[in-house]
């Protein structure tokens, strides 16, 4: 699929601003950004739920249109909400959405059984889903999206509120699909998921793609800088000011007066000087940590704020 210069406005707010990207078969593409960055709006345009104000989306060579039917046969959507019917069983939910996707009786039956096995829900397929645990509902939510073997699977924060065990099995299932040739568009604000799953990642903030590439390509954008976190009390503003003047310190971000986040070159070498400067400036430190560059660092480097702000 490809998205070309997508723009979406809601009144005065530009939710998505000139966003372009493409996903190849078998590739998992991640949209990484905080809540409100525009991830779900992009998903909604790609899935044909809302029209773009400008720009276009093509899936399997067909132009996406909210009224389009042929193009939608190629995509499976896993929304962030648990988009399942609580009064229906897992099998009834799968049958319903499978029919809407145009699966014939025979194919539908075999695919429903296969998906129930894949998700580990076969034994409880006849139970109303309102009796399921959160993790089981999440798995079913994903299963409906991949029931008709779509060429493009769109997953919008599929692991929100999921226990670690279910999260792991969801990530494994997505990995298997991608390995099987399915193109996956995956949005998350969990850095670890993006790093683990995605072949390429777009860093999204305020409706714009700030950077795009593989994990390693993105990390090189930080210039190989380390991230140092100083947590404590006292005169954090004065400490931040003093730390900015040190050689090797590229950026100091004050997170609410209790934490200073620094991006520095060779953090291990500078750590002693940084700590003493902070203490001399009136900050009482409770903890200090140094982390090597990761996507969080990339986001911080690109936007000046933490991913979960």
């Amino acid at each position: 699929m490809s998205a070309d210069r997508l723009v979406k406005r809601f009144g005065e707010l530009t939710a998505v601003d000139d966003v372009s990207f493409a996903i190849r078969p078998g590739e998992t593409y991640g949209l990484l950004g905080p809540n409100g960055a525009g991830k779900t709006t992009i998903i909604n345009m790609v899935a044909g739920l809302i029209p773009a104000d400008s720009g276009s989306v093509d899936v399997a060579g067909i132009r996406m249109d909210p009224a389009g039917i042929a193009v939608k046969r190629h995509l499976g959507l896993v929304p962030q909400e648990l988009a399942i019917y609580p009064d229906l069983t897992a099998r009834e939910n799968l049958n319903f959405f499978g029919r809407l996707q145009g699966l014939g009786r025979k194919e539908l039956s075999s695919r429903v059984n296969a998906v129930l096995e894949l998700l580990g829900l076969a034994e409880r397929a006849g139970e109303q889903t309102k009796k399921y645990s959160g993790g089981m509902k999440r798995r079913l939510n994903i299963g409906i999206g991949l029931l008709h073997r779509p060429g493009l699977l769109i997953l919008d924060e599929p692991t929100v509120g999921v226990d670690p065990q279910s999260r792991n099995s969801i990530l494994e299932a997505v990995g298997d699909l991608s390995a099987g040739g399915t193109a996956v568009l995956y949005t998350t604000h969990y850095m670890e998921e993006a790093e683990r799953l995605c072949d390429r990642i777009a860093i999204l903030d305020q409706g714009q793609i700030q950077a795009e590439g593989t994990r390693d390509e993105l990390i090189t954008l930080t210039g190989g800088v380390d991230r140092i976190s100083l947590v404590g009390a006292g005169r954090s503003a004065a400490a931040a000011e003093a730390l900015r003047s040190l050689d090797g310190v590229h950026r100091v971000t004050d997170s609410g007066g209790t934490e200073l986040i620094l991006t520095v070159t060779d953090g291990a070498a500078l750590l002693a000087g940084i700590v003493s400067t902070a203490v001399r400036s009136g900050m009482t430190l409770a903890s200090v940590s140094v982390t090597r560059p990761d996507l969080e660092s990339v986001f911080l480097h690109l936007t000046g704020k933490a991913l979960r702000d």
Binding site: L49, I69, P79, E81, I84, Y85, F97, Q101
Partner: peptide, 12 residues
Amino acid sequence: QGTLGRIRSTAV
């Protein structure tokens, strides 16, 4: 509950 969006994303 999100099911409307899911239905609208299908080929109907």
